[in-house]
Write a protein that binds this DNA or RNA. Structure first.
Lengths: 193, 193
DNA sequence: AAAACCTGCAACACGGATGATGTAATTAGC
DNA sequence: GCTAATTACATCATCCGTGTTGCAGGTTTT
Protein backbone atom coordinates (compact mmCIF):
# COMPACT_ATOMS: atom_id res chain seq x y z
CA UNK A 1 0.00 0.00 0.00
CA UNK A 2 2.81 2.34 0.83
CA UNK A 3 5.41 1.42 -1.81
CA UNK A 4 4.27 1.05 -5.39
CA UNK A 5 7.74 0.77 -6.92
CA UNK A 6 8.26 4.50 -6.44
CA UNK A 7 11.36 6.02 -7.95
CA UNK A 8 14.17 6.97 -5.57
CA UNK A 9 13.82 10.73 -5.85
CA UNK A 10 10.06 10.52 -5.60
CA UNK A 11 10.41 8.55 -2.40
CA UNK A 12 12.65 11.27 -1.01
CA UNK A 13 10.10 13.90 -1.94
CA UNK A 14 7.34 12.04 -0.14
CA UNK A 15 9.48 11.85 2.97
CA UNK A 16 10.32 15.54 2.79
CA UNK A 17 6.66 16.41 2.36
CA UNK A 18 5.57 14.33 5.33
CA UNK A 19 8.24 15.81 7.57
CA UNK A 20 7.44 19.32 6.41
CA UNK A 21 3.75 18.74 6.98
CA UNK A 22 4.48 17.60 10.52
CA UNK A 23 6.54 20.70 11.29
CA UNK A 24 4.30 23.24 9.65
CA UNK A 25 0.99 21.79 10.79
CA UNK A 26 2.25 21.40 14.34
CA UNK A 27 2.87 25.15 14.39
CA UNK A 28 -0.41 25.96 12.63
CA UNK A 29 -2.97 23.23 11.92
CA UNK A 30 -4.64 25.46 9.36
CA UNK A 31 -1.52 26.14 7.34
CA UNK A 32 -1.87 26.09 3.57
CA UNK A 33 -0.41 23.50 1.23
CA UNK A 34 1.77 26.29 -0.11
CA UNK A 35 3.50 26.68 3.26
CA UNK A 36 4.04 22.96 3.55
CA UNK A 37 5.48 22.85 0.06
CA UNK A 38 7.84 25.72 0.86
CA UNK A 39 9.08 23.95 4.00
CA UNK A 40 9.57 20.74 2.04
CA UNK A 41 11.44 22.53 -0.74
CA UNK A 42 9.06 21.36 -3.46
CA UNK A 43 6.35 22.93 -5.57
CA UNK A 44 2.80 22.85 -4.30
CA UNK A 45 1.69 20.87 -7.33
CA UNK A 46 4.12 18.13 -6.40
CA UNK A 47 2.28 17.59 -3.16
CA UNK A 48 -0.98 17.32 -5.04
CA UNK A 49 0.57 14.81 -7.37
CA UNK A 50 1.32 12.43 -4.48
CA UNK A 51 -1.64 13.23 -2.27
CA UNK A 52 -4.98 13.87 -3.93
CA UNK A 53 -6.15 16.28 -1.24
CA UNK A 54 -5.42 17.54 2.21
CA UNK A 55 -7.19 14.60 3.82
CA UNK A 56 -5.03 12.11 1.95
CA UNK A 57 -1.92 13.90 3.15
CA UNK A 58 -2.95 13.90 6.79
CA UNK A 59 -4.03 10.27 6.53
CA UNK A 60 -0.62 9.30 5.22
CA UNK A 61 0.95 11.37 7.96
CA UNK A 62 -1.08 9.58 10.61
CA UNK A 63 -0.31 6.07 9.37
CA UNK A 64 3.37 6.84 8.93
CA UNK A 65 3.63 8.12 12.47
CA UNK A 66 1.54 5.27 13.88
CA UNK A 67 3.86 2.73 12.23
CA UNK A 68 6.86 4.33 13.89
CA UNK A 69 5.08 4.31 17.21
CA UNK A 70 4.29 0.62 16.87
CA UNK A 71 7.93 -0.03 16.16
CA UNK A 72 8.99 2.02 19.18
CA UNK A 73 6.75 -0.07 21.39
CA UNK A 74 7.76 -3.42 19.93
CA UNK A 75 11.39 -2.52 20.49
CA UNK A 76 10.61 -2.43 24.20
CA UNK A 77 9.52 -6.12 24.19
CA UNK A 78 6.20 -5.50 25.90
CA UNK A 79 5.35 -9.22 26.06
CA UNK A 80 8.58 -10.69 27.31
CA UNK A 81 10.66 -8.17 29.23
CA UNK A 82 9.98 -7.68 32.95
CA UNK A 83 7.09 -5.22 33.21
CA UNK A 84 9.07 -2.44 34.85
CA UNK A 85 11.85 -2.72 32.32
CA UNK A 86 9.39 -2.86 29.46
CA UNK A 87 7.52 0.17 30.73
CA UNK A 88 10.69 2.16 31.04
CA UNK A 89 12.06 1.24 27.65
CA UNK A 90 8.74 1.70 25.90
CA UNK A 91 8.22 5.06 27.51
CA UNK A 92 11.63 6.33 26.48
CA UNK A 93 11.14 5.10 22.91
CA UNK A 94 7.66 6.52 22.66
CA UNK A 95 8.84 9.88 23.93
CA UNK A 96 11.32 10.12 21.11
CA UNK A 97 8.82 9.23 18.44
CA UNK A 98 6.11 11.41 19.88
CA UNK A 99 8.33 14.45 20.14
CA UNK A 100 9.10 14.16 16.45
CA UNK A 101 5.54 13.36 15.31
CA UNK A 102 3.37 15.10 17.87
CA UNK A 103 0.94 16.54 15.39
CA UNK A 104 0.55 13.41 13.31
CA UNK A 105 -0.12 11.25 16.35
CA UNK A 106 -2.71 13.67 17.70
CA UNK A 107 -4.60 13.41 14.44
CA UNK A 108 -8.05 11.83 14.78
CA UNK A 109 -7.92 8.45 13.06
CA UNK A 110 -10.59 7.68 10.51
CA UNK A 111 -12.57 4.60 11.58
CA UNK A 112 -11.38 1.61 9.61
CA UNK A 113 -8.21 3.29 8.43
CA UNK A 114 -4.82 1.68 8.90
CA UNK A 115 -3.91 4.32 11.44
CA UNK A 116 -6.99 3.43 13.42
CA UNK A 117 -6.07 -0.26 13.45
CA UNK A 118 -2.55 0.55 14.53
CA UNK A 119 -3.87 2.73 17.33
CA UNK A 120 -5.92 -0.20 18.51
CA UNK A 121 -2.84 -2.43 18.51
CA UNK A 122 -0.96 0.20 20.46
CA UNK A 123 -3.68 0.47 23.07
CA UNK A 124 -3.78 -3.31 23.36
CA UNK A 125 -0.03 -3.54 23.84
CA UNK A 126 -0.17 -0.88 26.49
CA UNK A 127 -3.06 -2.52 28.29
CA UNK A 128 -1.29 -5.87 28.22
CA UNK A 129 1.87 -4.43 29.68
CA UNK A 130 -0.07 -2.73 32.44
CA UNK A 131 -1.87 -5.97 33.23
CA UNK A 132 1.46 -7.74 33.50
CA UNK A 133 2.65 -4.96 35.80
CA UNK A 134 -0.46 -5.42 37.90
CA UNK A 135 0.12 -9.13 38.18
CA UNK A 136 3.64 -8.38 39.36
CA UNK A 137 2.29 -6.18 42.13
CA UNK A 138 3.55 -2.95 40.61
CA UNK A 139 0.01 -1.65 40.26
CA UNK A 140 -2.69 -1.89 42.88
CA UNK A 141 -5.05 -4.83 42.39
CA UNK A 142 -8.11 -2.65 42.57
CA UNK A 143 -6.83 0.01 40.20
CA UNK A 144 -8.90 0.80 37.12
CA UNK A 145 -6.44 -0.16 34.39
CA UNK A 146 -8.23 1.92 31.79
CA UNK A 147 -7.79 5.02 33.92
CA UNK A 148 -4.19 4.08 34.58
CA UNK A 149 -3.55 3.82 30.88
CA UNK A 150 -5.11 7.18 30.22
CA UNK A 151 -3.07 8.76 33.00
CA UNK A 152 0.01 7.20 31.48
CA UNK A 153 -0.78 8.75 28.11
CA UNK A 154 -1.45 12.11 29.75
CA UNK A 155 1.88 12.03 31.56
CA UNK A 156 3.67 11.34 28.32
CA UNK A 157 1.88 14.19 26.65
CA UNK A 158 2.67 16.55 29.47
CA UNK A 159 6.33 15.57 29.47
CA UNK A 160 6.55 16.55 25.83
CA UNK A 161 4.89 19.94 26.27
CA UNK A 162 7.19 21.30 28.91
CA UNK A 163 10.30 19.75 27.47
CA UNK A 164 11.85 22.16 25.00
CA UNK A 165 13.97 19.37 23.53
CA UNK A 166 16.04 19.54 26.68
CA UNK A 167 16.04 16.53 28.99
CA UNK A 168 16.89 13.11 27.63
CA UNK A 169 14.14 10.52 27.17
CA UNK A 170 15.41 8.19 29.88
CA UNK A 171 15.22 10.85 32.57
CA UNK A 172 11.74 11.83 31.49
CA UNK A 173 10.64 8.21 31.32
CA UNK A 174 11.88 7.58 34.84
CA UNK A 175 9.89 10.49 36.15
CA UNK A 176 6.77 9.38 34.29
CA UNK A 177 6.88 5.85 35.65
CA UNK A 178 7.64 7.11 39.13
CA UNK A 179 4.75 9.56 39.08
CA UNK A 180 2.40 6.99 37.59
CA UNK A 181 3.10 4.38 40.22
CA UNK A 182 3.79 6.48 43.29
CA UNK A 183 2.24 9.90 42.71
CA UNK A 184 3.49 13.06 44.37
CA UNK A 185 2.62 12.20 47.95
CA UNK A 186 5.16 11.64 50.72
CA UNK A 187 7.36 8.58 50.30
CA UNK A 188 7.16 5.95 53.01
CA UNK A 189 10.28 6.16 55.15
CA UNK A 190 13.00 3.98 53.72
CA UNK A 191 13.66 2.45 57.14
CA UNK A 192 10.41 0.47 57.08
CA UNK A 193 10.92 -3.32 56.77
CA UNK B 1 -13.08 46.83 28.46
CA UNK B 2 -15.82 44.27 28.38
CA UNK B 3 -18.87 46.47 28.99
CA UNK B 4 -19.03 49.78 27.17
CA UNK B 5 -22.66 50.60 28.02
CA UNK B 6 -23.79 47.92 25.64
CA UNK B 7 -27.48 47.71 24.99
CA UNK B 8 -29.40 44.83 26.54
CA UNK B 9 -30.05 42.84 23.37
CA UNK B 10 -26.56 43.38 22.14
CA UNK B 11 -25.20 41.99 25.37
CA UNK B 12 -27.33 38.90 24.91
CA UNK B 13 -26.10 38.52 21.35
CA UNK B 14 -22.52 38.68 22.47
CA UNK B 15 -23.12 35.96 25.02
CA UNK B 16 -24.87 33.78 22.49
CA UNK B 17 -22.04 34.27 20.03
CA UNK B 18 -19.36 33.36 22.55
CA UNK B 19 -21.18 30.22 23.63
CA UNK B 20 -21.84 29.22 20.06
CA UNK B 21 -18.21 29.82 19.15
CA UNK B 22 -17.14 27.54 21.99
CA UNK B 23 -19.43 24.72 20.87
CA UNK B 24 -18.73 24.96 17.17
CA UNK B 25 -14.99 25.54 17.39
CA UNK B 26 -14.59 22.72 19.89
CA UNK B 27 -16.04 20.37 17.30
CA UNK B 28 -14.08 21.90 14.42
CA UNK B 29 -11.40 24.54 15.08
CA UNK B 30 -11.53 25.59 11.46
CA UNK B 31 -15.26 26.17 11.36
CA UNK B 32 -16.48 29.25 9.50
CA UNK B 33 -18.06 32.33 11.03
CA UNK B 34 -21.23 31.28 9.25
CA UNK B 35 -21.48 28.07 11.27
CA UNK B 36 -20.90 29.97 14.50
CA UNK B 37 -23.56 32.48 13.58
CA UNK B 38 -26.04 29.73 12.79
CA UNK B 39 -25.42 28.07 16.15
CA UNK B 40 -25.81 31.40 17.92
CA UNK B 41 -29.04 32.18 16.09
CA UNK B 42 -27.79 35.43 14.63
CA UNK B 43 -26.64 36.63 11.24
CA UNK B 44 -23.00 36.31 10.38
CA UNK B 45 -22.66 40.04 9.88
CA UNK B 46 -23.74 40.58 13.47
CA UNK B 47 -20.67 38.73 14.61
CA UNK B 48 -18.53 40.93 12.43
CA UNK B 49 -20.02 44.04 13.98
CA UNK B 50 -18.96 42.97 17.47
CA UNK B 51 -15.71 41.30 16.59
CA UNK B 52 -13.63 42.85 13.86
CA UNK B 53 -12.15 39.53 12.79
CA UNK B 54 -11.70 35.95 13.82
CA UNK B 55 -8.78 36.78 16.07
CA UNK B 56 -10.82 39.33 18.02
CA UNK B 57 -13.51 36.73 18.58
CA UNK B 58 -11.15 34.06 19.85
CA UNK B 59 -9.42 36.62 22.06
CA UNK B 60 -12.71 37.57 23.65
CA UNK B 61 -13.51 33.90 24.02
CA UNK B 62 -10.23 33.25 25.77
CA UNK B 63 -10.54 36.12 28.24
CA UNK B 64 -14.16 35.30 29.00
CA UNK B 65 -13.30 31.71 29.77
CA UNK B 66 -10.23 32.66 31.76
CA UNK B 67 -12.33 34.96 33.94
CA UNK B 68 -14.71 32.14 34.72
CA UNK B 69 -11.82 29.87 35.56
CA UNK B 70 -10.39 32.44 37.95
CA UNK B 71 -13.77 32.65 39.63
CA UNK B 72 -14.00 28.86 39.89
CA UNK B 73 -10.64 28.78 41.62
CA UNK B 74 -11.35 31.66 43.97
CA UNK B 75 -14.57 29.96 45.02
CA UNK B 76 -12.42 27.14 46.36
CA UNK B 77 -10.61 29.53 48.79
CA UNK B 78 -7.12 28.49 47.75
CA UNK B 79 -5.49 30.71 50.39
CA UNK B 80 -7.53 29.91 53.45
CA UNK B 81 -9.18 26.49 53.23
CA UNK B 82 -7.20 23.43 54.33
CA UNK B 83 -5.09 22.37 51.33
CA UNK B 84 -6.80 19.05 50.75
CA UNK B 85 -10.24 20.64 50.93
CA UNK B 86 -9.18 23.49 48.67
CA UNK B 87 -7.68 21.11 46.13
CA UNK B 88 -10.82 19.05 46.02
CA UNK B 89 -13.18 21.98 45.72
CA UNK B 90 -11.02 23.77 43.18
CA UNK B 91 -10.68 20.64 41.10
CA UNK B 92 -14.41 20.03 41.03
CA UNK B 93 -15.11 23.66 40.14
CA UNK B 94 -12.45 23.74 37.46
CA UNK B 95 -13.75 20.53 35.93
CA UNK B 96 -17.15 22.11 35.45
CA UNK B 97 -15.79 25.26 33.88
CA UNK B 98 -13.32 23.41 31.71
CA UNK B 99 -15.90 20.98 30.39
CA UNK B 100 -18.00 23.94 29.26
CA UNK B 101 -15.12 26.01 27.87
CA UNK B 102 -12.59 23.41 26.81
CA UNK B 103 -11.78 25.01 23.49
CA UNK B 104 -11.52 28.55 24.79
CA UNK B 105 -9.19 27.54 27.60
CA UNK B 106 -6.95 25.59 25.26
CA UNK B 107 -6.51 28.68 23.12
CA UNK B 108 -2.95 30.02 23.03
CA UNK B 109 -2.94 33.33 24.91
CA UNK B 110 -1.42 36.31 23.20
CA UNK B 111 1.50 37.65 25.26
CA UNK B 112 0.36 40.71 27.18
CA UNK B 113 -3.32 40.02 26.64
CA UNK B 114 -5.74 39.94 29.54
CA UNK B 115 -6.17 36.20 29.07
CA UNK B 116 -2.43 35.80 29.41
CA UNK B 117 -2.38 37.74 32.67
CA UNK B 118 -5.27 35.71 34.04
CA UNK B 119 -3.47 32.50 33.10
CA UNK B 120 -0.53 33.71 35.10
CA UNK B 121 -2.74 34.39 38.10
CA UNK B 122 -4.24 30.94 37.77
CA UNK B 123 -0.86 29.29 37.69
CA UNK B 124 0.20 31.29 40.72
CA UNK B 125 -2.89 30.29 42.68
CA UNK B 126 -2.32 26.68 41.81
CA UNK B 127 1.34 26.83 42.74
CA UNK B 128 0.49 28.46 46.04
CA UNK B 129 -2.06 25.82 46.93
CA UNK B 130 0.39 23.06 46.10
CA UNK B 131 3.03 24.70 48.27
CA UNK B 132 0.59 24.81 51.14
CA UNK B 133 -0.18 21.15 50.55
CA UNK B 134 3.52 20.41 50.59
CA UNK B 135 3.94 22.23 53.90
CA UNK B 136 1.13 20.12 55.29
CA UNK B 137 2.95 16.95 54.31
CA UNK B 138 0.50 16.00 51.58
CA UNK B 139 3.20 16.27 48.96
CA UNK B 140 6.71 14.93 49.26
CA UNK B 141 9.25 17.51 50.39
CA UNK B 142 11.55 16.76 47.52
CA UNK B 143 8.89 16.81 44.85
CA UNK B 144 9.30 19.22 41.94
CA UNK B 145 6.24 21.39 42.40
CA UNK B 146 6.31 22.61 38.85
CA UNK B 147 6.10 19.05 37.60
CA UNK B 148 3.37 18.30 40.11
CA UNK B 149 1.37 21.23 38.84
CA UNK B 150 1.74 20.12 35.25
CA UNK B 151 0.72 16.58 36.14
CA UNK B 152 -2.30 18.02 37.92
CA UNK B 153 -3.29 19.94 34.80
CA UNK B 154 -2.78 16.85 32.67
CA UNK B 155 -5.00 14.76 34.94
CA UNK B 156 -7.75 17.33 34.71
CA UNK B 157 -7.47 17.37 30.96
CA UNK B 158 -7.55 13.61 30.74
CA UNK B 159 -10.58 13.39 33.01
CA UNK B 160 -12.47 15.65 30.65
CA UNK B 161 -11.56 13.68 27.53
CA UNK B 162 -12.83 10.34 28.63
CA UNK B 163 -15.83 11.69 30.45
CA UNK B 164 -18.74 11.91 28.02
CA UNK B 165 -20.62 14.24 30.37
CA UNK B 166 -21.21 11.23 32.57
CA UNK B 167 -19.59 11.17 36.00
CA UNK B 168 -20.14 14.04 38.39
CA UNK B 169 -17.29 16.47 39.08
CA UNK B 170 -16.81 15.44 42.69
CA UNK B 171 -16.16 11.81 41.79
CA UNK B 172 -13.72 12.83 39.09
CA UNK B 173 -12.02 15.29 41.40
CA UNK B 174 -11.55 12.63 44.04
CA UNK B 175 -9.90 10.33 41.54
CA UNK B 176 -7.64 13.10 40.28
CA UNK B 177 -6.40 14.05 43.74
CA UNK B 178 -5.95 10.41 44.68
CA UNK B 179 -3.95 9.68 41.55
CA UNK B 180 -1.91 12.83 41.90
CA UNK B 181 -0.90 12.11 45.48
CA UNK B 182 -0.70 8.33 45.53
CA UNK B 183 -0.33 7.14 41.96
CA UNK B 184 -1.43 3.74 40.76
CA UNK B 185 0.97 1.62 42.76
CA UNK B 186 -0.04 -0.78 45.53
CA UNK B 187 -1.54 0.87 48.61
CA UNK B 188 0.21 0.33 51.92
CA UNK B 189 -1.83 -2.08 54.03
CA UNK B 190 -4.45 -0.25 56.06
CA UNK B 191 -3.41 -2.06 59.22
CA UNK B 192 -0.34 0.11 59.60
CA UNK B 193 -0.49 2.59 62.53
C1' DA C 1 22.21 6.16 -24.79
C1' DA C 2 17.26 5.62 -24.69
C1' DA C 3 13.21 5.20 -22.21
C1' DA C 4 10.52 6.13 -18.46
C1' DC C 5 9.73 8.88 -14.89
C1' DC C 6 9.66 12.89 -11.86
C1' DT C 7 9.63 17.88 -10.99
C1' DG C 8 8.83 22.80 -11.51
C1' DC C 9 6.35 26.41 -13.67
C1' DA C 10 2.35 28.82 -15.27
C1' DA C 11 -2.30 29.37 -15.89
C1' DC C 12 -6.96 28.21 -14.91
C1' DA C 13 -11.59 27.36 -12.73
C1' DC C 14 -13.89 26.74 -8.59
C1' DG C 15 -15.62 27.26 -3.93
C1' DG C 16 -15.76 29.18 0.40
C1' DA C 17 -14.74 32.61 3.64
C1' DT C 18 -14.26 37.38 4.61
C1' DG C 19 -15.51 42.08 5.15
C1' DA C 20 -18.35 46.34 3.83
C1' DT C 21 -22.62 48.51 2.50
C1' DG C 22 -27.52 50.22 2.54
C1' DT C 23 -32.19 49.15 4.34
C1' DA C 24 -35.74 47.47 7.57
C1' DA C 25 -36.84 46.35 12.40
C1' DT C 26 -36.35 46.63 17.28
C1' DT C 27 -35.08 48.85 21.29
C1' DA C 28 -34.32 52.38 25.00
C1' DG C 29 -35.60 56.65 27.14
C1' DC C 30 -39.06 60.03 27.85
C1' DG D 1 -47.15 55.31 23.30
C1' DC D 2 -43.77 58.12 20.58
C1' DT D 3 -39.33 59.34 18.65
C1' DA D 4 -34.67 58.71 17.72
C1' DA D 5 -31.02 55.84 17.85
C1' DT D 6 -29.14 51.52 17.43
C1' DT D 7 -29.21 46.86 15.81
C1' DA D 8 -29.88 43.03 12.60
C1' DC D 9 -30.45 41.46 8.10
C1' DA D 10 -29.69 40.59 2.96
C1' DT D 11 -26.88 41.58 -0.78
C1' DC D 12 -22.67 42.43 -2.97
C1' DA D 13 -17.58 42.60 -4.18
C1' DT D 14 -13.30 40.51 -3.19
C1' DC D 15 -9.72 37.59 -1.78
C1' DC D 16 -7.37 33.23 -0.65
C1' DG D 17 -6.75 28.36 -0.81
C1' DT D 18 -7.59 24.27 -3.46
C1' DG D 19 -7.27 21.10 -7.11
C1' DT D 20 -6.31 20.42 -12.19
C1' DT D 21 -3.90 20.48 -16.57
C1' DG D 22 -0.14 20.95 -20.08
C1' DC D 23 4.48 21.28 -21.10
C1' DA D 24 9.53 21.77 -20.85
C1' DG D 25 13.64 20.27 -18.51
C1' DG D 26 16.14 17.26 -15.59
C1' DT D 27 17.03 12.58 -13.28
C1' DT D 28 16.87 7.76 -12.53
C1' DT D 29 16.68 3.31 -14.44
C1' DT D 30 17.58 -0.18 -17.85
Amino acid sequence: MSDKTLRADAERSVRAILEAAEHVLAADPGASMEQIAAEAGVARTTIHRRFANRQALTDALATSAARQLVKAIDDGRPDTAPPLVAMHRITANVLEVKSAWAFALALPAEPGSEASLLQRDINDSCALTLRRAQNDGLIDEKADLDWVRRVYYALIGESLHGNAEGADPDTLAARIIDTLLRGAGPRPSRSAP
